[in-house]
């Protein structure tokens, strides 16, 4: 039995399909990167997986149990044991870092000491243990990332969805965060679904890849296959740009 099964998932917005017949099976411990330009349907896919929105058609199973289907959300997001890091991080500005991180946990657990212990533990793992009392607005971009990551991982999810979480960071910072994500994923063995339009970071983090365009899958494969594919595209791009700049001379 697979952890996550997607079967013929379709989503329409006002008669336009943004996700067309998407099927895939994913297992615990896998790192899957979904690559595509904005508007290719990757964010919609994440939102369907998380249960924030229902699919228009198709079926979604977690551990063999149907969680979305028939155009409806059957199991609500918080019962799926899924976490998500949003593109804009969605840190709540009025809550402290600590409160941001243990927001979900304090609904499930009443024991304050345990909450505190778990919060500190994850904060240490992502490296923001000194910032717990501060408000998100005082943090740097990288620190905000780490808070969002900590918040997503504190409840030990089976699946972690990441929606272009690193797009606003500079390259060095990105590397450091990627390192943290990878080490945590190796340690905790959750299924990581990582969505990005920047294939370098996607290539770093993923081990299985899906390239999408206009709601459809245009390429699937392992790192080697996808890398070759992407490089061929890049090469074509290079030739075209050289032509352009040459033409200007």
């Amino acid at each position: 039995m697979s952890l996550l099964e997607l079967k013929n998932i379709t989503k329409m917005y006002k008669d336009k399909s943004v996700l067309d017949n998407f099927s895939e099976t994913m297992e615990r411990g896998e790192r899957i990167a979904i690559i595509g330009h904005s508007g290719c349907g990757k964010t919609t896919l994440l939102r369907i997986i998380s249960g924030l929105i229902p699919p228009y058609e198709g079926e979604l199973k977690i551990n063999g149990k149907i969680v979305s289907g028939n155009g409806k959300v059957i199991v609500p997001p918080y019962k799926r044991n899924i976490s998500m890091v949003f593109q804009d991080l969605a840190l709540w500005p009025h809550l402290s870092v600590e409160e941001n991180i243990n927001f979900g946990l304090s609904i499930k657990i009443k024991n304050k000491n345990e909450i505190k212990r778990k919060t500190e533990e994850i904060a240490k793992q992502v490296g923001i243990e000194n910032k717990l009392k501060e408000k998100p607005s005082t943090l740097s971009g990288g620190e905000k990332q780490r808070v969002a990551l900590a918040r997503a991982l504190i409840s030990n999810p089976d699946i972690l969805l990441m929606d272009e979480p690193l797009s606003s960071l500079d390259t060095m910072l990105k590397l450091k965060i990627l390192e943290t994500i990878l080490s945590l994923q190796r340690e905790r063995r959750f299924l990581l679904i990582f969505v990005s339009h920047q294939f370098h970071e996607a290539l770093t983090i993923g081990e299985r890849f899906i390239i999408m365009e206009k709601g459809r899958v245009i390429k699937r494969g392992n790192r080697k296959e996808v890398k070759a594919y992407l490089e061929s595209i890049e090469k074509r791009f290079k030739i075209e740009t050289e032509k352009l700049s040459g033409g200007e001379k």
Binding site: L52, P77, Y78, I82, S83
Partner: peptide
């Protein structure tokens, strides 16, 4: 308020009233 703020809370297990 960005919609993600509410969605994040929903995923974290908060019901709407919370």
């Amino acid at each position: 308020i960005p919609p993600s703020m509410e969605e994040a809370a929903e995923i974290e297990g908060a019901n709407w009233l919370y």
